[in-house]
């Protein structure tokens, strides 16, 4: 076992983990943050996307040990009440159906908007290359990101 210490959603935590523990399993199993999902085992689907030190990462492809000392934000930390512009826009534009890809999709979109506040449709589609949705055909997800970008720029 090895000890990891990190800040998750603003809270300092410390846990003993097996070195093989992936960040996503630390979040889900040890910390009970089940909003971060596992949809594949080859780093394709992006359901596990969180922010580590301000950047979007696939938490299924990061060892907990690699996150030691880092600051991690999960969907639960984006806002607790769904008030973040992206969360509101996903609801407003019907950018989710089953909801399973949604936390990762929102965290990935947040990573995009942090880099590019006013993306084109093409840039949004490219930026979401690492996040798979089987329900929406992406149509309303793209609209949701566009809506959120407008909201955030006007804020």
């Amino acid at each position: 076992m090895a000890q990891v210490q990190l800040t998750v959603n603003g809270r300092a935590i410390s846990r003993d983990v097996e070195p093989r523990t992936l960040l996503v399993h630390l979040l889900r199993d040890a910390l009970g943050l089940t909003g971060t999902h596992v949809g594949c085992d080859t780093s394709q689907c992006g359901a596990c996307t969180v922010h580590m030190d301000g950047r979007g990462v696939k938490s299924c492809t990061v060892l907990a040990m690699q996150a030691d000392g880092s600051t991690v934000t999960t969907i639960e930390g984006l806002s607790t009440d769904g008030s973040h512009a992206l969360q509101r826009a996903f609801k407003e534009e019907h950018g989710l159906q089953c909801g399973f890809c949604t936390p990762g999709m929102i965290m990935s979109a947040a990573d995009l908007l942090a880099r590019n506040a006013n993306p084109t449709e093409h840039e949004i589609r490219e930026a979401l290359e690492g996040n798979l949705c089987r329900c929406t055909g992406y149509h309303n997800i793209v609209k949701a990101v566009q809506t959120a970008a407008r909201t955030m720029q006007n804020a």
């Binding site: 780093s43 580590m52 950047r55 990462v57 990935s108 995009l112 690492g130």
Partner: peptide, 9 residues
């Protein structure tokens, strides 16, 4: 390379 999330790590 890969996608933006992969490029971040």
């Amino acid at each position: 390379i890969g996608d933006p999330l992969i490029r971040n790590m």
